[in-house]
Amino acid sequence: MTISTHLILVSAQPIPNITPILDDSLRPQKVVMLVSPDMTERSQALENIFKPRGIRIERCTIDNPGMRNTSATGYSTCLRNIRTAASPSMRPAAPN
């Protein structure tokens, strides 16, 4: 199976994000990380694991749910990039 892009939510639990990368049959070409400000250091640690394995990295900063000053523009750009990278079967259906 060829996986082009793997979307992960960076959290305090790294194992669910690392496991697919270590399996040669699941290893994606690119990882898109959704990273809240408090998980920046953890995202760097994951990047240090992924990059030596030849995996491209893209980071999308997301705001913490409790924060009042959210950046909808950055989040929208991130979602647009994810949709563009998704396989045709994963893209939203075109409106009629």
Rank of each mutant, 00 (worst) to 15 (best):
I57L: 01
I8V: 15
N48S: 07
G66T: 13
N64D: 10
P14E: 08
Q13V: 04
R42I: 10
H6M: 15
I82N: 00
I3P: 13
S71T: 12
S87N: 14
S87V: 14
T19M: 14
I57P: 00
I18R: 02
E58V: 14
L79R: 08
N48P: 00
I3V: 15
Q44M: 06
S25H: 12
F50Q: 02
D63S: 08
S4A: 12
I8Q: 08
D63W: 05
V10M: 02
L79Q: 10
M90I: 03
T84H: 06
T2C: 11
E47L: 06
P37F: 05
M1N: 14
L46I: 07
M33N: 04
R27K: 10
Q29C: 09
V10T: 02
R56P: 00
S76H: 12
N69I: 12
S25W: 12
A72W: 15
T77Y: 02
V35C: 03
I82A: 01
I55D: 02
P65F: 04
D24C: 01
I55C: 05
S11Y: 10
S4R: 12
P95E: 04
A85G: 05
T77E: 06
R27F: 01
R27S: 02
Q13S: 04
R68Q: 10
P20E: 07
D63I: 03
F50C: 09
P20T: 07
A45M: 13
R91K: 15
T73D: 13
L46H: 08
I3E: 13
R83P: 00
N64M: 11
R91Q: 14
P37N: 07
A94V: 03
R56F: 00
S71I: 11
P28T: 00
N69P: 14
C78E: 01
M1W: 09
S89M: 05
M90L: 05
G54T: 01
A93Q: 12
Y75L: 14
I62F: 13
R91M: 11
I57G: 00
P52L: 09
R53Q: 08
R53I: 00
S4E: 13
E41Y: 12
P14H: 07
N81P: 02
V10Y: 01
M90S: 05
I15N: 13
N48R: 09
A72H: 14
L22Q: 09
S89K: 10
N81W: 00
S25P: 08
T2P: 11
T19V: 15
Q13R: 02
A72N: 12
R42G: 06
Q29K: 14
R27C: 04
A86L: 03
G54F: 01
L7P: 01
T40I: 10
P14Y: 07
S4L: 09
S71M: 09
I82F: 03
A93C: 08
Q29S: 15
E58H: 13
I21Y: 11
M39Q: 15
P52C: 11
L79W: 07
S87A: 14
L79E: 07
A85S: 12
S25N: 12
N69Y: 07
N96D: 10
F50N: 01
R68D: 11
D24A: 07
G54K: 01
L46F: 13
M67D: 15
P88L: 04
H6E: 15
I21K: 09
V32G: 03
A85N: 04
T70H: 13
I15P: 12
N17P: 03
P28K: 00
P20I: 06
D63G: 04
H6V: 13
R27T: 04
R91F: 04
L9I: 08
K30C: 03
R91V: 05
